[in-house]
Structure formats: C-alpha cells, structure tokens
C-alpha cells in the first residue's frame, strides 16, 4: 500500500512539473535569473497556440478580444445580455477600424495572461494593468487609462492608511495589482484572497475582512452606490498604466495598436469613451476624468494628483 502511494506521489509530481514547464514557455532547465534573456528564443520553439498577425486577423474576418464580463463599468454584460463598458467601447472601435467582426471572450483576472500565451484571444482589453512581471509574458500597447490602488472599508472602522491595516485582514482579488502590492510592501497585513470581484465585495459586506483593496476606480465607484462604506485611501502606490496586451512577439498587431491609439488620441476618443461609459458612474467631473483617461498613450506622470501616495511601489 505504501509503495503504491509513493508511486502515485511521484507521478503527481511529474505531472505538476510538466504543467510548470508549460508555464515557463517551454524553457526547461533555465534558471529564473536568465529566463528573461531567453524569452525571445522561446517563441520559435513553441509551434503551439501561435498568435495571429494583423493580416491573418483581417483575412479571417474576425478578431477575438478578451474582456471582463463582470467588471462594471469597464467590461460587463448588461441586463439584455450585451457587453458594455469602457474596455468594450474600445474593443468595438478596434474591430471597426480593422473592418472585422468582433468576438468578445469573457476572461477572469487570473487567466488573462494564459489566454494570450496560448493565443486563445488576439488582444486582452480587460482592465489590464502594466507591470514588469506581466511585461515578461505579454506585450503591452500604449496605455489608454491609468489607475492607482484604493482601499475601501466600512464606515464603522475606516482604514485611512496602510499602517491602520497592520494585523488586520485585507480582502484582495487574486492576480490583481493589489495582491502584489500588499504582498511586497505590507507583509504585516493578512490577505484574504478571492477569485472574483463579486466574491470579494460579498466578503467585505459580510465583514469577513476589515477592508478591500483593488484599483481606485473600482472601489470609488462601488463605495458611491454602497452606503456604509468609504474609500479611506483613495490613491496608493504609483499610478499604473492600463493598456491593451497582445501575445508576446506579436509585433504587427502591437504596432497596429500603437498607431491606432496615437490616431485615436487626435480625436480625443477616450474622452468620448469616458462620457459614454464611465460618466454615469464617476460623474462628468473634469478633474476625475483627466485623472483616469490617457490619450495617445501619453501618461503625463508629472500632473498626477495622485502623487501624495508613496512612490516606493514597484508596480
């Protein structure tokens, strides 16, 4: 009996190693230190899940874009079953300018990178924050939005600084910037992790944690419609860029997106996007709009009003 158990353990370990090897882009035996340097060569080795160039997308007549399906007001499905939101508005424009049919694929935060790495989608437009870690796995186009972190807590015990959180429980969603930020910068804070935003908000409402942290856009909007909760920390960490991402090495699509975003900047497309999709939630307040919207991919970091936050964040 012991023998069979040992064998099964060995096989399980082997299977897991196999999966992990898959995660490393098929570079077996490379140390973590030099895996970045090799990321260029690994593309050619994997014939699998290869990305499509702009020409191939045009030829097929269809583009697949990964969006959130439950992150109102950025990417969500309305009561009639139609995709809506800031990201979706942009996705529709991309399809229109490429003159192809748009297929939206619902993605979860934790699987966004995987969807691109296996080329199950051409572009991810799911509130994707640009981080150094993600840059190693996917290629980001210029930003079309920017955010910092926010922390929302119940009125009865408002969390106003990271120090307030010491020894307390903070709710985060797996795979988000908030999870990384607090893991790296605030080891004293106990993290309670959930797979989906929905579950995280339920947890906060049920009092399973002292506060919830994610992008400030998200918590501000939520607190507005949930009396009894206040955003005690409006801006934490450096402002992060939110950008479209493509499969690593898909240069033609990346270039097309870069040109597209630059061109859209001239017509102030994302201001219009804000007015159409976000104004209902955040209000048409100009300062807030300027804090959020990025035109032509130009992040003007000097004029950030979100600069009272600590800049040591590595995000």
């Amino acid at each position: 009996m012991k023998f069979t158990k040992m064998i099964s353990a060995v096989f399980a370990a082997a299977a897991m190693t196999l999966t992990m090897a898959g995660c490393g882009n098929g570079e077996s035996g490379s140390t973590p230190a030099n895996s970045n340097a090799q990321s260029n060569t690994s593309e050619t080795s994997s014939a699998s899940g290869s990305f499509r160039t702009v020409d191939q997308i045009k030829e097929s007549g269809e583009i697949k874009i990964g969006v959130f399906s439950d992150k109102n007001p950025f990417g969500y499905v309305d009561n009639d079953g139609k995709y809506q939101g800031y990201d979706v508005y942009f996705a529709e424009r991309i399809a229109k300018d490429l003159d192809v049919k748009l297929t939206l694929v619902p993605v979860e935060a934790a699987a966004r990178v995987e969807f691109l790495e296996t080329a199950k989608v051409d572009i991810v437009l799911a509130n994707f924050t640009v981080t150094d870690e993600r840059k190693q796995k996917v290629d980001f186009a210029p930003a079309y939005m920017k955010v910092a972190l926010g922390v929302v807590s119940p009125d009865s015990a408002i969390i106003k600084s990271v120090d307030d959180l010491k020894g307390k429980t903070l709710i985060v969603v797996k795979g988000t910037t908030a999870e990384t930020y607090f893991t790296e910068n605030a080891p004293d804070v106990k993290l309670q992790k959930y797979d989906e935003y929905n579950e995280a908000y339920s947890a906060l409402q049920d009092g399973r944690g002292n506060a919830f942290s994610t992008d400030n856009t998200e918590v501000l909007a939520w607190a507005k419609s949930n009396p009894g909760f206040t955003v005690g920390i409006e801006s934490l960490g450096s402002a992060d860029a939110i950008a479209p991402a493509v499969t690593k090495g898909n240069e033609t699509l990346l270039k097309w997106l870069t040109d597209e975003i630059t061109a859209l900047g001239e017509e102030q497309f994302f201001h219009k996007d804000y007015d159409e999709t976000l104004a209902d939630v955040y209000g048409a307040d100009e300062t807030y709009k300027e804090n959020l919207v990025v035109e032509g991919g130009k992040m003007d970091t000097s004029s950030e009003t979100a600069s009272n936050s600590d800049k040591s964040a590595s995000a």
Partner: peptide, 18 residues
Amino acid sequence: GITEVLKVGKQIIDANRF
C-alpha cells in the same frame, strides 16, 4: 471562458451593482 449558470448570475449581479 465558459459562461455557465453561476457566471451568468455573477454578471447579472455586477451589471446591477450600482
């Protein structure tokens, strides 16, 4: 990426969360 009944439920909750 499959939208089964629980996911539809989450979408509905989210679409109406405000």
